[in-house]
Design a protein around this nucleic acid. Structure first.
Length: 136
DNA sequence: GCCAACGTTGGC
DNA sequence: GCCAACGTTGGC
């Protein structure tokens, strides 16, 4: 069973285009326990929507989990974890936050309900719906 | 630049 | 262990 997730990044910090260019990245710096729990639950090969926060405000691509959770080297306390992700596919049509908010099928997404959460699970039906909107 | 939501910290 | 104060995130 493939798991579905959503990871956020500010484009000015780490943009989707950079992930594509570099072919992969360590996803570290998560300092929230709820988000960390999602990181720990990720399996190799799981898919994650890549969302641009602050600027763009849209899901722009799909990444895959290349390496499951390990101790985050940037965390001195040793409590938090990082995963490695790789680019999988760009969306033909980015799905904006406003489109998500306006879609009754997507209203309950963690992205909408808990906007500050940087890593969150995505339900399979939500995943499918977004793929439709993205014209994949 | 403002503000709401949420997490964390520290005094009691 | 409660709660006020403060810091951070992120949408608008």
């Amino acid at each position: 069973m493939t798991g579905y997730w959503l990871i956020k990044s500010e484009p000015s910090v780490y943009a989707w285009e950079r992930l594509v260019k570099e072919g992969g990245a360590r996803w570290d710096g998560v300092r929230n326990h709820q988000a960390a729990a999602s990181l720990k639950a990720m399996k190799k090969g799981d898919c994650a929507f890549f969302y641009h926060s602050n600027e763009g405000l849209a899901i722009v691509g799909i990444a895959t989990v290349a390496k499951t959770a390990y101790a985050d080297p940037s965390d001195k306390t040793g409590k938090f974890v990082a995963v490695d992700v790789a680019p999988f596919k760009a969306l033909a049509k980015p799905v904006s936050l406003s489109a998500i908010k306006n879609d009754p099928a997507l209203k309950n997404m963690a992205l909408v309900r808990q906007s500050r959460l940087s890593v969150s699970p995505v339900a399979p039906d939500e995943w499918q719906r977004i793929l439709e909107l993205a014209k994949i």
